[in-house]
Design a binder for these strands. Structure first.
Length: 886
RNA sequence: GGGCGAUUAGCUCAGUUGGUUAGAGCGUUUGCUUUACACGCAAAAUGUCGGGGGUUCGAGUCCCUCAUCGCCCACCA
């Protein structure tokens, strides 16, 4: 078939093979997808990794699965396009580059100013960014690299501006003063989703706030003493008999010279704490609401970096919030105003990126009202237009969507899409538009940029050229499948659905597969700080990309976390080696035949039992794999492939085929043809999972000509060479006898390599006939010198007692004149007899249960009867054996 | 407080509408360099399927309950 066949080395060495094929694929344009009316389209958009990111095992899993899907659909004749790209990751990148500039040039944001800083970020991005995209190639990802995009590319930025303007004009986007989450590290507002709550130990400090008239004090409890400088009231419940008479009076706010009112408000719960609550409208969402009800002043006591500002007074101004807390408590204690201190564990909101406690504070920000956007997006999932795998994630989705809050979209950083709003300071006018205002006047553009996710939520269509109505959009949108982690269901998945429905009037994808989260062996999350996060490139160097891909798919359970360790890559590595050697074995039998694509009619007519068995195993695996992939049950497909190759093909089929191969002539020719046919099918079935080794072997074996690629070879179809159940049972009955023979050898320490005599007493005349027809194979598999097949008992009187093993189709004996340990055999057989009797009594009990007979399906009853008959037969034969030995 | 998931061999996990004697890999034990593979071959051992109750002719599988572990959301003066 091909001139490029070459001899394979003894062990598979992935490094050179993997380096060789990727450039060939890429340079030939095999990854490129373009609108093609003659084919069905299949598209995936990559979850754009952060431009600062480097490859992690999470990416490996995620992108391997996407690649499996893409390669599979490509082999099914579809026009596949996998759109790659990166996300500008505003806060993360800005922090990363700031750190870099500080280290390399001892400069940064503040020194450089906005324009220069942004120029430096772009420079950094060109130089170091997107490393991950290059690393994905090492993994073999068949993305359409010609279409790589970045969320801050001109086209995508234009999409962002248009979307902003459209939502503003619809009244969804507005600017307002609200309680927001503030990250003191980024010195920016955050969305609710960017806050992570952690349980941490803390204290309740009970403070005495003296009544202004000197008649006593109220006790308030707080976890945040340093915010007391922003207190503008103390609230009590209006129905609380202890305090209601105090409403309207004043307390003196300690450490300040202010007096604040006691207000009556339902917010104060008489059953909690002392029943008195200090009200800090500037720093607590509930207090903010109380403040609004009572028209209280909002006193912000924090600087952007969470140090205290002038409102905290000269003693505290400039102090870090935690320093201020200590000092505040100490001063209260000194003044005898610290009532008591309680140790508690409470949830504290942390900034996702900065990993420090956030502040809640009141600030002017841009928001997007999501209520209307959510409606069609909820409907899309409810109606099944979009399906989630595993389905249960839809519950999480609905819960969030149905309680959706306004999205804080402005960020006080520089790296990102600057909000397209301009202020006219002369007349207070606000202009929002895609381009700067042309109207005369002094216009000043909004300083803030947009949340990173405000560009990523447009990704499925902005990456295809929207707002232009491109051919790509017409052909590839909506995309088919999305593969991502459940951790970004709110950040990204839900918002993409909303954006698709709103701006494209069509869902962005049909299926969403949520991957597992990868943990280490002990179940901890992988993280840099724990040092338990292996570098995938090291793993690829040690085991090979195919091995890593296969392993991670193989061990990824559906919808659960993965416990990963590098050692597990042995699975993929040894599997690759096994496949390699199966091919090597075939190659040692001679050149590739013409049968790889299709078996000739004559060959089909002449197939042996084992060969038919193998072909039907292949078909069964094929059907199962197709179903599994259609349901995103990747690991089931990987397990099927593993078992097919290792157990069925290597352990049984290759071993069985050694018999006709040894026989030579027509037998050998036929065996080679079937081996070629089966191997070529196996390689194609494996290709989506292990792209490199399968391409290499397809060429090395001569299944493909130079210049061809397995990437565009057809995924196998069920070949319709159907085989009867009877034949499968016959072949597997034969295998059982072989296993029985090996068991006997092992018991008597007779190496498999030594030829011995076997005697098989067939269970009945049919079995005898079948076994007789398989005599050659049986003799070969058992490595027997002589094989006697008979309906008669083994004649222990004449030939000496022999150990035996009971199998379905017969009983196999290993005659060992004089060597047998009769007692050991009797003990073994006695045990077996007892077991059989147990099962028989169970089976009889079931069959004598009238309700079972009446209610169970016919087939189940028939099977039970058949099983009982088999057990009874086995028992009879066991008893016969016992009698013959005792 | 609300929701979701997990609990099966020493370890990591399969087990698709309930239906023969619950499986795999790793590890363990034993024996093999048999003309692909020691990254290998053959064989063996190990389970009250977390506890309890229920439905059913029949439960690892369905229902209830308890326990333990984990995740998400909300709340917390």
């Amino acid at each position: 078939m091909s001139s490029c066949q070459h001899e394979l080395p003894r062990a598979y060495e992935p490094a050179d093979v993997e380096k060789k094929w990727f450039p060939i694929w890429e340079n030939n344009g095999y990854f490129h997808g373009k609108p093609n009316p003659d084919k069905k389209g299949y598209s995936i958009v990559i979850p754009p990794p952060n431009v600062t990111g480097i490859l992690t095992l999470g990416h490996v899993l995620n992108n391997t699965l996407q690649d499996v899907l893409c390669r599979y659909h490509r082999m099914n004749g579809e026009e596949v396009c996998w759109f790659p790209g990166t996300d500008h990751a505003g806060i993360a990148t800005e922090a990363r580059v700031e750190k870099y500039l500080r280290k390399e040039e001892n400069t940064g944001r503040d020194e450089l100013g906005r324009d220069e800083f942004i120029r430096r970020v772009w420079k950094w991005k060109e130089e170091f960014g997107g490393k991950i995209i290059r690393q994905l190639r090492t993994l073999g990802c068949s993305c359409d690299w010609e279409r790589e995009r970045f969320t801050m590319d001109e086209g995508l930025s234009d999409a962002v501006r248009r979307v902003f303007v459209e939502l503003y004009n619809k009244g969804y986007i507005y600017r307002g003063q609200r309680m927001i989450n503030w990250c003191p590290v980024a010195k920016s507002a955050l969305s609710d989703e960017e806050v992570i709550y952690k349980d941490v130990p803390g204290h309740f400090w009970h403070f005495r706030y003296p009544l202004a008239d000197g008649s006593g004090y109220l006790v308030v409890a707080t976890t945040r003493p340093e915010t007391m400088f922003g207190d503008t009231a103390v609230a009590v419940n209006p129905d609380d008999p202890r305090y209601k008479h105090l409403i309207g009076k004043l307390v003196k706010l300690p450490l300040t010279d202010r007096e604040i009112p006691i207000v009556g408000d339902e917010h104060a719960d008489p059953t909690k704490g002392t029943g008195c609550v200090k009200i800090t409208p500037a720093h607590d969402p509930n207090d903010f609401e109380v403040g609004k009800r009572h028209k209280l002043a909002v006193i912000n006591v924090m600087n952007p970096d969470a140090s205290l500002n002038a409102n905290a007074g000269p003693e505290f101004e400039g102090l870090d919030r935690f320093e201020a807390r200590k000092k505040c408590v100490a001063m209260m204690d000194e003044q005898g105003l610290l009532d008591k201190v309680e140790d508690i564990v409470h949830a504290v909101g942390y900034s996702e990126r900065g990993d420090v406690p956030i502040e809640t504070l009141v600030s002017y920000q841009w928001f997007c009202n999501m209520k209307e956007l959510a409606k069609p997006a909820v409907e899309a999932v409810k109606s099944g237009s979009i399906k989630f795998y595993p389905e249960r994630w839809s519950k999480t989705y609905f819960h969030w969507m149905e309680n959706i809050q306004d999205w804080c979209i402005s960020r006080q950083i520089w790296w990102g899409h600057r909000i397209p709003a301009w202020y006219n300071d002369d007349n207070g006018e606000v202009y929002v538009g895609v381009e700067a205002p042309t109207a005369p006047g002094k216009w000043r553009q909004e300083e803030d940029v947009l949340d990173t996710w405000f560009s990523s939520w447009l990704w499925p269509f902005s990456i295809m050229g929207w707002p232009k109505n491109t051919d790509e959009l017409k052909y590839f949108y909506p995309t088919c499948d999305l593969v991502t982690g459940p951790d970004i269901i709110f950040f990204w998945v839900a918002r993409m659905i909303m954006a698709g429905c709103e701006f494209m009037k069509e869902i962005p994808f049909r299926n969403v597969y949520f991957t597992s989260i990868i943990r280490d062996e002990t179940g901890r999350k992988l993280s840099k700080s724990l040092g338990n996060s292996p570098d995938p490139l090291d793993v690829i160097n040690a085991y090979g990309a195919d091995a890593l891909r296969f392993t991670i798919v193989y061990i990824a359970p559906v919808g659960m976390d993965i416990r990963y360790s590098n050692e597990k890559c042995e699975i993929g590595k040894t599997f690759a080696n096994k496949l390699w050697n199966a091919c090597r074995f075939r190659q040692m039998q001679g050149a590739c035949t013409d049968a790889a694509e299709k078996l000739g009619a004559e060959t089909v007519a002449a197939l042996s039992g084992d060969e038919k068995w193998m072909l039907s195993k292949l078909d069964a695996a094929l059907d199962s794999i197709k179903t599994s992939l259609a349901d995103f049950r990747f690991h089931t497909a990987a397990h099927d492939l593993y078992d097919l190759v290792w157990s069925d093909f290597c352990d049984w089929f290759i071993e069985a085929e050694k018999v006709p191969l040894r026989a030579g002539g027509a037998d050998k020719q036929r065996a080679c043809e079937v081996l070629d046919y089966a191997l070529w099918r196996i390689l194609r079935m494996l290709h989506p999972f292990m792209p490199f080794i399968t391409e290499e072997l397809a060429h090395a074996m001569g299944f493909l000509a130079d210049g061809d690629t397995i990437m565009y070879s057809a995924f196998p179809e069920n070949d319709g060479l159907a085989v009867s159940d009877g034949l499968i049972a016959m072949v597997e009955g034969k295998f059982e006898l072989v296993r029985g023979g090996r068991f006997l050898r092992a018991n008597y320490n007779i190496p498999d390599g030594r030829k011995v005599n076997f005697f098989i007493k067939a269970a009945d005349a049919d079995a005898l006939a079948e076994l007789e027809s398989e005599r050659q194979m049986l003799t070969g598999l058992l490595n027997a010198e002589n094989l006697t097949l008979s309906l008669d008992e083994f004649d222990s009187a004449a030939d000496g007692a022999a150990p035996s093993k009971l199998c379905g189709r017969g009983t196999i004996y290993l005659p060992l004149a004089g060597l047998i340990d009769v007692n050991a055999e009797l003990i073994k057989l006695g045990k077996q007899r007892k077991e059989l009797e147990g099962w028989i009594s169970g089976a009889r009990g079931k069959l004598s249960n009238e309700r079972f007979l009446a209610k169970a399906p016919e087939q189940v009853v028939a099977d039970a009867k058949k099983q009982l008959a088999e057990l009874e037969d086995k028992l009879t034969r066991t008893v016969e054996l016992i009698n013959s030995l005792s």
